[in-house]
């Protein structure tokens, strides 16, 4: 009798562990604290400013690029200049200091992700970065994690987390199959 109880407890604990793993994998990502409380929701959502207005290098470079401080000030010299966050911005500009933004989306060093061909192929920014226009604070759970692999093993796999290799490959394969694109599937296109 005692033995059966033990087995039951162990099973329950295992189940709970799996549930909590599954939960943590799907949980809202922690967003890093940024030096200025910039809101994509206001800029991209409310005012519908085109992503590439600020991230202007995306169409011509590997990097999407961040707007220069002077570009921010182009609008904010007048717009909302009295708000405390904008005054922070103005302070950076006046001191000729770059704003130390904290990186949110990051792939490992051995991955070369170029924005340009994706913009050329008319992939929307949201495809990879999520509905940024709805986010006041941007955060993301990206990259590989063991949880997902374990869930995979147990047959509980959700689709891969964003910015993992499987997730990239999935999109490339789907696009090639459905839209006759020529998205490369060679390893060395990204890993070189």
């Amino acid at each position: 009798m005692r033995r059966q109880v033990g087995v039951g407890v162990a099973t329950l604990a295992l189940f709970a562990a799996i549930l909590s793993l599954a939960h943590s994998a799907g949980a809202q990502p922690a967003a890093p604290a940024q030096p200025i409380a910039f809101s994509h929701q206001i800029h991209a959502g409310q005012y519908k400013i085109n992503c590439q207005y600020c991230h202007a290098d995306a169409r011509r470079s590997e990097y999407a690029g961040l707007p220069s401080v002077s570009r921010c000030m182009g609008c904010h010299k007048i717009t909302a200049a009295d708000r405390p966050e904008i005054q922070k911005l103005a302070a950076f500009f006046n001191e000729k200091k770059p704003i130390p933004w904290v990186r949110v989306f990051k792939v490992p060093e051995y991955v070369h992700f170029p924005h340009k061909p994706h913009v050329r192929a008319e992939v929307t920014c949201q495809t990879c970065h999520g509905p940024v226009e709805t986010m006041a604070v941007v955060g993301a759970t990206t990259g590989q994690n063991l949880t997902n692999d374990l869930l995979n093993l147990l047959g509980l796999a959700r689709s891969s987390t964003p910015l993992t290799m499987g997730w990239c490959v999935e999109c490339h394969t789907t696009m090639n199959a459905t839209k006759q694109t020529k998205a490369p599937l060679e390893c060395v296109v990204c890993h070189h």
């Binding site: 470079s61 590997e62 220069s68 002077s70 000729k96 170029p114």
Partner: peptide
């Protein structure tokens, strides 16, 4: 950290 330029030069595109 990503440090944007304060004032960008004319012909330099990162990347």
């Amino acid at each position: 950290q990503i440090l944007p330029l304060v004032i960008p030069p004319d012909n330099l595109v990162p990347g």
